[in-house]
Design a protein around this nucleic acid. Sequence first.
RNA 1: GGCGCCAUCGUCUAGCGGCUAGGACGCCGGCCUCUCAAGCCGGUAACACGGGUUCGAUUCCCGUUGGCGCUACCA
Length: 480
Amino acid sequence: MSNNIRVRFAPSPTGHLHVGGARTALFNWLFARHEGGTFIVRIEDTDRARSTEESERAVLEDLTWLGLTWDEGPGVDGGHGPYRQSERLDLYREHAERLLASGKAFRCYCTDEELEEKRKTALVEGRVPQYDGVCRDLTPAARKQLENEGRSPVVRLRAPTRDVAVSDLVRGDIEFKKEMLGDFIILRSDGRPTYNFAVVVDDALMQITHVIRAEEHLPNTMRQVLVYETLGYALPAFAHVSLIVDKDRSKLSKRRGATSVAEFRNLGYLPGGLLNYLALLGWSPPDSEEVMSVAELIEKFELERVSPSPAAFDEDKLDWVNAHHLREEPLADVAALGTRFAEARGLVEPDFDRFEAMVDLAREGLARLSDLPDAISFFFDGDLEVEDGAREWLFRDETKQLLASLVSRLGESEGEMDAGTFKAALKAAGKDAGVKGKDLFMPVRSALTGRTHGPALGEVAAVLGRGRVIGRLTQAEGGS
RNA sequence: GGCGCCAUCGUCUAGCGGCUAGGACGCCGGCCUCUCAAGCCGGUAACACGGGUUCGAUUCCCGUUGGCGCUACCA
């Protein structure tokens, strides 16, 4: 069932899942599903100051809501765990120990202040700030001395000084100059690993074959390649996808609107709609069919068709994609997702079939589920809100007679009232009153829904049911 | 500052040396229709700039400009 392709999504639990992260996760997931590989989720929580369990829960929840389920990760053991970096500390220590023993890494006793001082001086003198290697070849005696001063060392990699070339699946060949970095830290003074070290140890141990991540990590790739090499592990393939930016080309910011998956969920977007839109940001299908189900995305997805340039988030198009999903996804799913939006507005319908029927009629005109309550509120009992435009139709001279005629026509039919019987009665009543077209429909629509816009009238009447229809017509007739 | 990435309609994109530069969102019209949507038809709008390479560049190379990222004991 699965081949040897293994990819991972590695979020740091510092808040809700961002749409950028969601897209990275999506590309990994689609690639894995398309290739029949394994999708792994790994929690990068080595930054203890910012990571919280609550955030981890939130991120995992967001992924689950999107349907991006993992084959290995928190809660799903696949033999390469644990899947939380905070639980893998011994692994990093062992690897660092190994490098220390072979002389490929060394302990550095420089303090933050000393380093900061040197950095400033370098900047002032117009040099590139870089670790100067003072602790590179400390004698055991010198180290003892420094430790006696109470300094706790970090571990630095003895970085090979040479250019590094990487072949990226979406960007082609990239070359990093050797001047770019000095001996960088792999283990902090408290024994926790730095990002670039932990990532490599984890990716190697978890046998990740394709590292698909955001472009912001591109410069890190050089360090990581060096770590792979000194550790003696084989390099994975890299694919750096572009960033999602704002309309004004800057980083996606909160102030401009929703940025997290949770926010989009609350705004009434469907998981399938959001996923579809996100996929279109930086990837294009081989055909020109842009509205796709998850199954179609999996079938069509290829890394070769991922674009290297940053993409701006466009809510208009998201709405358009979501609107399509709203009316094309299974009615039961849409209705189930819509329930909480309706109930939040006090629109509770115990009969799910009837609720489904309402959603079915309303979804034609919706872009998001948050618009659902407004679109179906008139189906519910209680005081019917009547718009000004609707009131005008009700006050017309001919309306009273028309409605009376319709009530009596409806009285002639028996049993269930479906859209067909209602329409037949409507037509007959129209003949009685000598009106047709707009003059026939609008007064009735107004009486039944209190509005001048809405789904097909016959279907609306059927969902309302004979009792409500006659009740509302009678009430409107009396009031007109 | 240094290093790196990116550059086709307002936006998402197709294009992989020869195209009237295609599609989608949006916008503007029209059709359909009881209405709103949807749907259908039509319109609007782009190869950042300058050098090369080539018979021929949107496409390949270099530079400029612009945008973004990295430059932490954050990820």
